[in-house]
Design a protein around this nucleic acid. Structure first.
Length: 438
RNA sequence: GUGGCUGUAGCUCAGCUUGGUUAGAGCGUCUGGUUGUGAUCCAGAAGGCCGGGGGUUCAAGUCCCCUCAGCCACCCCA
């Protein structure tokens, strides 16, 4: 057993404590996002933070299985070291399970949003945690590309409502990617290797991609034709021509074009366009895939795609589905770089002496009933300390009622920012606060 | 998982190269500058087995090894 002095008080690696100042920012952001999703006609859903292990495994690809936080069996089986449960890795697979489980009870198409933490046993980094929140909007039960576009529109409206501008949506389709691989005569078995390399184009450049393709064993002839397509003066056009030669390629292009046209002017603060090499990591995507990329920091802030096969993995009957997910932690990181006004209570009610405590509680209650946030000093500290507390809480006003004020039927109200203080009739307090804070 | 950098007061860091009396600074905290006024000013105080373990040495915050943690890049991802 470790002694108290040996106990680290740091939160576990990749997790965070949210102190009040951070929580104010987070609550505001989550409220904004929920309001936008509501306005777009999506309904809230929540599911347990952990699922049966077999519900989660095999849905995300090999990488995902490794990064899952598994929960050991308990009771008489605890010695086996086996896991039978795991913390959810995303919000999409739980959605698929819910739809498979409650199918006919749900209104179809089922449009839901889900704001909740997920867990990944990943190595933490900048804007990357082992426990983090996702904000998902999905449509289950519609193969229409309007569904895909709806979730992209909701996500981009949410970003705009958060005050985030300057991003672009990169759009592609898994079908187009399959067509791309086929059109260059690459063995379908090498599809994943090919896509992983191509996906890095923005990051490591064309030469880097070609080198990695070679490393991953892609035939030289295919690398040459791919390279010449991507090096063309208009790579998108060159790839498009190539895709026209494959059925999958044509289907993928049609998806991309349709989704883009549906969204024409519906991406406030951003632009949308085809990105021929965007692949996305999760293995369950089947159709359109997209990523919201912040222009300045070149980081992904939201993403999504269509996953028509996922629900069928639970129910046996495929049900088309598509959705977008906001990377709220990265968005908050970006917003934090902008100046945030501190948010404290409107008023702190001070307590000059024990006789005034009941009066102070009543005063705070009265202010709350009038719609203000009112904090009340608790404790026995000196009066100067109470004002310091009010100042550090970033309160706008301090209400002061000592023996003098109480006897006179008055109350003093001090503005913390300016130091201005006035004494008014006690009965006029609410009106005074209202006009001062207006 | 691979490579590099960093761990000293609540926070941000100096000291380490050239081992040697009580390990420092700023900010924060607490107390005081008399009765009921914060954010400014002045004075004072508390607070550290120098991440942990081992080694070299008469002597280690300082040198060596191991370990843990954090940061950056890669991998992957939101």
């Amino acid at each position: 057993m470790s002694s108290p002095a040996d106990l680290s008080t740091d939160p576990a690696s990749g997790t965070r404590d949210f102190l009040p100042a951070a929580m104010a920012v987070r609550h505001r952001a989550f409220d904004t996002i929920r309001a936008v999703f509501d306005a777009h006609g999506f309904a809230p859903l929540d599911t347990p933070s952990f699922e049966r292990l077999d519900v989660l495994t095999g849905k995300y690809g090999e990488e995902g299985d490794q990064l899952m936080f598994k929960i050991l069996r308990r009771g008489e089986h605890e010695d086996t070291g086996e896991a039978d449960l795991a913390l959810r890795y995303d919000l999409t697979v739980p959605l698929a399970r819910v739809v498979a489980r409650y199918g006919s009870q749900l209104v179809t198409p089922f449009k839901r949003y889900h704001v909740a933490p997920v867990w990944r046993a990943d190595r933490p980094g900048h804007g990357r945690y082992r426990e983090f929140f996702q904000c998902d909007v999905d449509v289950v039960g519609s193969d229409s590309l309007v569904a895909d576009a709806s979730t992209i529109a909701a996500a981009s409206d949410a970003l705009a409502a958060l005050g985030l501008e300057g991003f672009h949506v990169q759009l592609n389709s898994r079908k187009a990617l399959r067509g791309l691989v086929a059109a260059h005569g690459i063995d379908p078995a090498l599809e994943t290797d090919t896509l992983v390399a191509l996906d890095k184009l923005d990051k490591i450049g064309l030469d880097g991609v070609l080198a990695e393709l070679d490393q991953r064993g892609i035939p030289g002839a295919a690398i040459d034709t791919l390279g010449s397509n991507l090096a063309a003066s208009d790579p998108a056009e060159a790839v498009r021509e190539r895709l026209e030669s494959s059925a999958d390629g044509r289907a993928g292009l049609a998806e991309v074009d349709t989704v883009a046209s549906l969204l024409d002017d519906l991406v406030p603060g951003g632009t949308i366009g085809w990105s021929p090499v965007l692949a996305r990591g999760l293995s369950y995507y089947t159709g359109p895939v997209w990523e919201f990329v912040h222009d300045g920091l070149d980081t992904t802030i939201a993403s999504g795609g269509r996953y028509d096969g996922l629900v069928g993995m639970f129910s046996g009957n495929d049900l088309p589905a598509t959705g977008s997910s906001l990377g709220i932690e990265r968005i908050l990181l970006l917003l934090a770089e902008q100046e945030q006004a501190p948010v404290g209570p409107d008023v702190v009610v001070t307590v000059m002496d024990d006789d005034g405590a009941a009066d102070a509680m009543a005063t705070a209650a009265e202010l709350r009933a009038a719609g203000f946030s009112a904090d009340l000093w608790v404790g026995t500290g000196k009066f100067g300390k109470q004002l310091k507390y009010a100042d550090r809480r970033d309160a706008r006003l301090a209400v002061i009622a000592g023996a003098r004020e109480r006897e006179a039927g008055t109350v003093a109200v001090k503005q913390l920012a300016s130091g201005d203080q006035v004494t008014i009739e006690r009965s006029a307090l609410v009106d005074h606060v209202r006009s001062t804070l207006a």
